[in-house]
């Protein structure tokens, strides 16, 4: 299901493709790129995108270092929305920085 990928490796990462992770259920103020609808939800790492400047720092004029490992996480739609009306097999994928993830 997961394609071979030429994306940047992130050697010091905490999670690997296929591992179950949970997005932290937290509501800190400031610029965050973790949509509220996935906070507290569990999914599976779909790919490791590499290490990227931290947008939570960039937003305020800092250099974004240290970089953060960015993952794509796949969620079952039924996990995200209790009233999801589509098919059981429907999914949603999005990008989450490592400091927002914990092992599930």
């Amino acid at each position: 299901m997961t394609l071979p990928s030429a994306y940047t490796e992130a050697p010091a990462r905490r999670f690997n493709v296929g591992e179950r992770v949970r997005v932290k259920l937290a509501f800190p103020p400031g610029h965050r790129r973790t949509p509220v609808y996935v906070r507290g939800k569990s999914g599976v790492v779909e790919r490791v995108c590499g290490a990227f400047a931290n947008p939570e720092e960039l937003a305020y004029g800092f250099d974004g270092n240290p970089k953060r490992v960015l993952y794509r996480v796949r969620f079952r739609q039924r996990e995200l929305w209790s009233d999801y009306a589509g098919s059981e097999s429907d999914h949603l994928e999005l990008e989450i920085y490592e400091h927002w993830l914990e092992a599930a």
């Binding site: 790129r33 739609q77 098919s87 429907d90």
Partner: peptide, 28 residues
């Protein structure tokens, strides 16, 4: 949260047995 309904409004009907996968382009 309701991709199939939105797709229908674009005239695109995806059969139940076909998975719909939404990609949220939320970061890099």
């Amino acid at each position: 949260r309701e991709p199939r309904a939105v797709l229908r409004e674009f005239g695109t009907v995806i059969p139940e047995e076909v998975e719909v996968r939404v990609h949220d382009s939320n970061a890099d």
